[in-house]
Simulated scan of single mutants.
Amino acid sequence: MNVNKVRACCAIVIAMMTLDAVAQSKPIAYPSKGQSAQQQQKDDGACYSWAKSNTGIDPTTASAAPPPQGGPAVGGGERVGGAARGAAGGAVIGAIAGDAGKGAAIGAATGTVAGGMRARQNKRTQEANAQAQSQGAMSTYYRAWAACMQGRGYSIQ
């Protein structure tokens, strides 16, 4: 198994764990001193503002997935690079076999496919890393929010 496949597998596992953690990450505040629902809502808003200003993290933007990178030419040059490497290798093999041009064409096509695979693996890894970073930010925010709510007399789970 090559390094890129291992990275892609790790990225997928991290993304799945992160998505599961995001769904379970917001702590629950229980009014342990008999606070009314209206008071709890008021305290929640105050703690939201306090945690946001003290951590610099806004949970409404931090939990949103980053916009996908790339467009029709997804790959950031991996396909072109793969085609060039494949053409060079194919030309060498083709020259040995007697037809360098045909070998270069076959190598370029194969290199383009390999470059596309590499581009997709890199994109999956980047998405998983962005998701993990977002989860870390949310965890920091929720720790601050929980500290504020505990200070106002709530039990946090």
Rank of each mutant, 00 (worst) to 15 (best):
C47T: 11
A132F: 12
S53G: 04
A147M: 10
N129A: 01
M16Y: 01
G94H: 00
C10K: 14
M1D: 06
I96E: 02
A95R: 15
A128Y: 15
G136V: 07
A97Q: 03
G82E: 01
G151I: 13
P27T: 06
I156S: 05
A144Y: 06
G153A: 06
N2P: 04
E127F: 11
A91H: 04
A95G: 02
G71F: 03
A114Y: 08
N129F: 10
S155N: 09
I28K: 15
N54P: 00
G101E: 14
Q69P: 11
Q131D: 13
T125Q: 13
G34S: 08
N122I: 04
N2A: 01
A23N: 06
D43L: 10
G76M: 12
M1N: 03
I14M: 11
G98Y: 09
I96W: 14
K5C: 07
G77V: 11
S25V: 03
I106E: 11
G45I: 00
G153R: 05
P68V: 02
Q39H: 07
A21V: 05
A105I: 09
A37E: 15
S134L: 03
Q131A: 10
Q126L: 12
V92I: 12
C47S: 11
R7G: 04
A132M: 07
P31T: 01
A108H: 04
P72F: 14
T61R: 10
T61K: 10
E127A: 15
R118V: 00
I96C: 02
D44A: 12
A21S: 11
V74T: 07
I28W: 09
S134R: 02
